[in-house]
Design a protein around this nucleic acid. Structure first.
Length: 261
DNA sequence: AGTACCACCTGACGGC
DNA sequence: TGCCGTCAGGTGGTAC
């Protein structure tokens, strides 16, 4: 699922392919993907504009354009991007297609329609309106400890709470807690100082590893939960048995042996 | 404040 | 074979 590392890879993908190119035309296949903007408004605002600069915050990707408005993309659970030239290479489930004046196209692909594309006036205002907290990778250790350690909720929901920490979703919260050996239901206020430090370090290590491996799971270290994310699988860290449980109606994978309560 | 639902959405998958 | 229920999980809303 597109979480912080995935969106970072998408950002770098746009930087490497589409930046500084001008949008010649736009096609919106399914306008349900648009928020707070009509198909016509999107086309009118962005046509002829270059993509100047990208900025990622949490799971949100903002693209500065020649217009005053920024293009915002959120990838929901099945969103992705593809840059290509030949029409025959247009991916299935393309919802919005940006055609550049060099003949290439950038497809915003979203199979389950849970993503969002919209225009944004100001990033800070947008984040504030949507109650999005600081980006998980841009916090220093003290800020991180202060935010996580003071939440009275369980650690996993706390980690996934975008108003506290932006960018971590279900899969990466499982991975980070797995690597840190912390039980997902542990109360955040019960974490000791070493555990908070571990969580900070693992947040960085896991996200960095995922970004460096371009989100290709089979390239992740074998010690990663994502490669054994199946009920009954052997835990690559301690030999225990991976189990699942529901926390706030989310499926959580963990190892009961080395992530003890 | 935290928990627990619902809705949106649609492809994959298992049961019968 | 093919129908049907369930699951996946991003955000956002509501109720307690």
């Amino acid at each position: 699922m597109p979480e912080l590392p995935d969106v970072q890879v998408y950002k770098e993908y746009i930087d490497a392919t589409s930046l500084h190119q001008s949008i010649e035309s736009i096609d919106v296949m399914d306008a349900r993907i648009l928020r707070n903007v009509s198909k016509d408004q999107l086309i009118q605002t962005l046509s002829g504009q270059p993509l100047d600069e990208t900025h990622r915050h949490g799971k949100y990707l903002f693209i500065h354009t020649g217009s005053k408005q920024l293009l915002m993309m959120h990838f929901g659970m099945t969103g992705s991007l593809k840059y290509y030239k030949e029409d025959s290479d247009e991916p299935e489930y393309t919802q919005v297609r940006f055609d550049f004046d060099n003949g290439y196209h950038l497809a915003y692909v979203c199979k389950r329609m849970l993503g969002q594309v919209q225009l944004v006036e100001d990033i800070k205002q947008f984040l504030s309106d949507h109650d999005i907290g600081p980006d998980a990778l841009r916090l220093n250790r003290d800020e991180f400890r202060n935010i996580l350690g003071t939440s009275r909720a369980m650690i996993k929901p706390t980690f996934m709470d975008q108003s506290k920490l932006a960018g971590i979703g279900n899969e990466y919260s499982d991975e980070i807690l797995f690597q840190a050996g912390i039980h997902p239901r542990k109360q955040a206020t019960d974490l000791n100082s070493d555990q908070l430090d571990d969580l900070f370090d693992q947040t960085h290590d896991v996200c960095t590893t995922a970004i460096e491996n371009r989100i290709e799971w089979d390239k992740f270290p074998d010690s990663y939960l994502v490669r054994h994310r199946e009920k009954g699988a052997n835990c690559p860290i301690c030999g225990g048995t991976i189990d699942t449980m529901k926390i706030n109606s989310r499926t959580c994978y963990y190892c009961p042996q080395h992530q003890s309560q």
